[in-house]
């Protein structure tokens, strides 16, 4: 498990750069992670990110896009607008979670 330094702190990440330790994340770090992939975080982004974090804490899994629309109440289109092209992966990266495992 590589350890890297981002925003002045040591972080555990996987080979691609996704955080692997739930508790190493906070909102400040989210801004840095988002900037890394060219996203300027707004309140709309943060609502989604917080849903991901809460759902992960509750279920132990990163929610899939389908779960974000179903359980989180976010429209698919909104997610594609906020996190263009690869919403599921971009969202989990910014939320400091691993990629979702489910197919749908």
């Amino acid at each position: 498990m590589p350890v890297t330094t981002l925003a002045g702190r040591d972080l555990h990440v996987d080979e691609e750069g996704f955080l692997t330790e739930y508790d190493e994340w906070d909102e400040e770090l989210a801004k840095v992670l988002a900037a890394n992939i060219g996203i300027d975080l707004t309140d709309a982004h943060m609502r989604v990110i917080h849903f991901l974090r809460d759902d992960y804490r509750a279920t132990g899994q990163t929610p899939t896009l389908r779960r974000c629309t179903n359980a989180g109440g976010f429209a698919t289109k909104e997610l594609f607008d906020l996190f263009p092209k690869k919403p599921a992966k971009k969202m989990s990266y910014i939320a400091g979670l691993t990629k979702p495992v489910g197919c749908v």
């Binding site: 890297t4 750069g17 060219g38």
Partner: peptide
């Protein structure tokens, strides 16, 4: 667990040119 210290944080490449086409 062996921990590898990387100086530059790995950043996933989400918008790889070839892939988006």
């Amino acid at each position: 667990m062996t921990e590898l210290l990387t100086k530059t944080p790995p950043i996933p490449s989400f918008d790889d040119e070839a892939e988006t086409q």
